[in-house]
Design a binder for these strands. Structure first.
Length: 213
DNA sequence: AAAACGGGGGC
DNA sequence: GCCCCAGTTTT
């Protein structure tokens, strides 16, 4: 089971990992594997790796080539293997073997940017973090929720606008909507649940068709 | 701000 | 064959 339908949105492979075992380290590693890689590849790759090693000590003990082989064919598998092993080492040496729970600390890890850090806080620690990827950035601007140039600006703005509860669901719904309907180039506006809805509801001017990625 | 990293799947 | 993908890092 690679995906599950939830109110029209999809649960990502990282969510699936988190649901099975809400271990911040597993969430972190599977998120790193998922970067620019489809769920159908991410989940099996994560499972192969975790079958061999599922904690920082186990990961650092692995040969980098071994990690590469396990997570293939995830994209950027060489870079990811290096980052994963290095991150595990830093977690052991700098953070006492525990995954840090702040954006600033998480982003010190190689291969971990703002989006990954927030997803780990959200899915791994259950904290109210909003992760802004290309989908969320695009949709937020199309809907006129924000007028921002960078994903980081979008993130800061959304933290003020969006509700404080159900952040995990909100993240997934926004992304699922961006994947299936409000796509970058040819949005399926005829299937958009927001188009033509009650006044005051967010709308799309259809002018924001872009290739922000 | 733009390019590089990378393999797989859809059409 | 060409385009796209729940980004991050380096120029």
């Amino acid at each position: 089971m690679l995906r599950k339908e939830v109110g029209g949105a999809t649960l990502s492979s990282v969510s699936e990992i988190a649901r099975r075992s809400p271990d911040p380290f597993l969430v972190l590693i599977s998120t790193m594997i998922s970067l620019r890689t489809k769920d159908e590849v991410t989940l099996p790759a994560s499972e192969r790796l975790f079958a061999v090693a599922d904690d920082p000590t186990g990961i650092v003990a692995l040969d980098e080539g071994k990690i590469q082989k396990l997570i293939y064919p995830a994209g950027f598998y060489r870079t990811k293997a290096r980052s994963i092993k290095k991150a595990a080492g830093i977690i052991i040496e700098q953070y006492g073997g525990r995954v840090p729970n702040s954006v600033d600390e998480l982003t010190t890890l190689p291969g971990v940017g703002r989006k990954t850090a927030n997803l780990v806080l959200n899915l791994g620690f259950g904290l109210p973090a909003i992760c802004v990827d290309t989908h969320v950035h695009r949709i937020s601007n199309r809907f006129g929720w924000v007028t921002t140039k960078t994903p980081e600006q979008t993130e800061l703005a959304l933290e003020v606008i969006l509700p404080r509860h159900h952040w995990i669901e909100i993240n997934e719904l926004l992304v699922g909507y961006g994947q299936k309907i409000c796509t970058p180039l040819s949005p399926r506006c005829s299937e958009c649940p927001f188009l033509g809805s009650v006044s005051g509801a967010p709308h799309c001017d259809r002018a924001g068709v872009d290739r922000s990625r």
